[in-house]
């Protein structure tokens, strides 16, 4: 999305304009300059994650991975190696005996993608090669079991871009709770029963914030609701050397109980409610945020997913919806997600 704010000299009597986009949000279009078109719009795209993989209909992770890796391939001239953690992406892209990866790809274990990638990067360094390295995994393999190796990679400032596809749970194994699962969400291990149905408040962690605290050269969150922004961030990350982290919000229709054609819409609602702040940071400081166009009530986001259905079953709305709303409001303040002008048409 291109965002041109026309600034006017004081005294101008004309109205301030805010320009959001030209044309469709998706693949790219002829109205946009070549340099601004998405990688996916090009015939020359590497298709590093090619068709034939076994992802579910509407899988946000497949979408995010395709955009991210092709952007990285373009940025590096195809001189790229990918290391993948165990998880949905690894499983649906390499159904034995096939693979949909068209770049060198290594899957080792669930919890060590960051360390394995560090090893690949070390090998490239020692051999004097310029080949770049990406590590990728889901939230389970990143925020939980992969956390130690991730922190080690950050702390050493190894030259690896780690991409986390955050669908807020262990989806491949049947939708279990991870430390990225939002409060109140129903999962197989946080069922919607008992005193506090769903995932409980007061648990969980923000790995992007933790990444920022490691003072690494680049941290960003991204979303499949803004694929241009995702490509831009991956491209930018590949222009930097050192430890980098991008976390992409990728809805999982199956795990979230949402319609498979609602993936991008859901992702957009998560952003526009303030629940999933989209920002960039470098060396311990937030450098840029993606502003919210118009704040959307979080209930609009929650209602579209069966994993939150229990919040709306009773005669009155579960009071925890208000708590989630408060989280959104706090994010908006903390990250400055709304312009001072506030809501605008």
């Amino acid at each position: 999305m291109t965002d041109h704010t026309a600034t006017l000299a004081p005294g101008d009597a004309t109205q301030q304009l805010k320009y959001y986009q030209k044309g469709t949000f998706t693949v790219g279009n002829r109205l946009v300059d070549e340099g601004e078109r998405s990688v996916q719009a090009s015939q020359e795209r590497s298709n590093a994650l090619t068709c034939g993989h076994r992802a579910c209909q509407g899988c946000g992770e497949a979408l995010g991975a395709r955009y991210a890796i092709d952007a990285a391939m373009r940025a590096t001239g195809g001189d790229l190696i990918a290391v993948n953690a165990t998880g949905c992406l690894e499983v649906f892209t390499t159904p034995y005996p096939e693979t949909s990866w068209q770049l060198p790809w290594l899957h080792s274990l669930f919890g060590n993608a960051a360390a394995v990638a560090s090893g690949v990067a070390a090998a490239m360094r020692v051999k004097g090669r310029k080949t770049r390295v990406i590590a990728q995994g889901g939230d389970g393999g990143t925020t939980d079991i992969g956390f130690q190796c991730l922190s080690g990679m950050f702390e050493r400032n190894d030259d690896v871009l780690y991409i986390c596809y955050d669908n807020e749970g262990y989806m491949n194994t049947g939708v279990q709770r991870s430390s990225a699962t939002p409060p109140t969400a129903r999962t197989a291990t946080t069922p919607a029963i008992g005193l506090e149905p769903g995932n409980v408040f007061g648990t969980g962690k923000s790995v992007p914030k933790i990444a920022v605290a490691h003072n690494i050269p680049y941290v960003a969150t991204a979303t499949v609701a803004d694929l241009h922004d995702l490509e831009r961030k991956v491209t930018k990350a590949m222009s930097i050397h050192g430890a980098r982290y991008i976390q992409i919000h990728v809805p999982c229709p199956l795990g979230w109980g949402a319609a498979s054609n609602d993936t991008i819409h859901l992702a957009r609602l998560a952003v526009e409610s303030g629940l999933y702040p989209i920002f960039e940071a470098a060396h311990g400081r937030v450098t840029q945020v993606r502003k919210i166009r118009r704040q959307v009530p979080v209930a609009d986001y929650l209602r579209r997913q069966r994993r939150f259905a229990h919040l709306f079953k009773g005669a009155t709305e579960d009071p925890r919806v208000a708590r989630l709303q408060a989280m959104c409001d706090a994010n908006i303040v903390d990250y400055g997600l709304l312009d001072a002008l506030g809501d605008d048409t």
């Binding site: 080792s108 360390a115 394995v116 690949v120 051999k127 190796c149």
Partner: peptide
């Protein structure tokens, strides 16, 4: 765990 994992990555990359 990280030590052997780094070795795995390095070895797979030809080092």
């Amino acid at each position: 765990f990280a030590a052997l994992s780094v070795a795995i990555g390095a070895s797979a990359a030809g080092a």
